[in-house]
């Protein structure tokens, strides 16, 4: 059984190609992602009875940003939370812990890329 890829290194490389090798610009996008992600995760950890639509949007943003930067596993997990919230189900603490771990892993993978060196 093959496991889906957790991080696509070529995504950042392609972003560099698409933006005319503007490392500074792509780095700004990455920094925005790293800065915004914890707040989005915090919104997902809102107490029971919180605004599910706001949780859905937070999960959507996290999934979308992760996908743009090649963080495929994080994107998949956040998307699953988004669908749950859309269907009226608040994400469980355990599910959000997995999302948080995927975020840490994604940031580490991005930072380890040669393009920043």
């Amino acid at each position: 059984m093959t496991h889906p890829a957790t991080f696509d290194e070529t995504t950042i490389t392609q972003l560099l190609v698409d933006t005319g090798d503007d490392v500074e610009f792509v780095r700004e996008l990455v920094d925005t992602f790293i800065a915004d992600a914890p707040a989005l995760l915090e919104e997902l950890r809102a107490p029971a009875g919180a605004d599910l639509e706001a949780q859905r949007r937070a999960a959507h943003s996290l999934a979308s940003n992760a996908s743009t930067l090649g963080a495929l596993e994080l994107s998949r997990l956040a998307r699953a939370v988004e669908h749950q919230a859309r269907d009226g189900v608040a994400p469980s603490a355990a599910a959000l812990d997995v999302v948080a771990a995927a975020l840490t892993s994604a940031v580490a993978s991005i930072e380890a890329l040669d393009v920043w060196k």
Partner: peptide, 16 residues
């Protein structure tokens, strides 16, 4: 787009 990353990226690609 309310998302800064996608908004800025689209802006840059259009500008290119």
């Amino acid at each position: 787009d309310d998302g800064e990353i996608n908004r800025r990226l689209l802006g840059r690609l259009l500008e290119q």
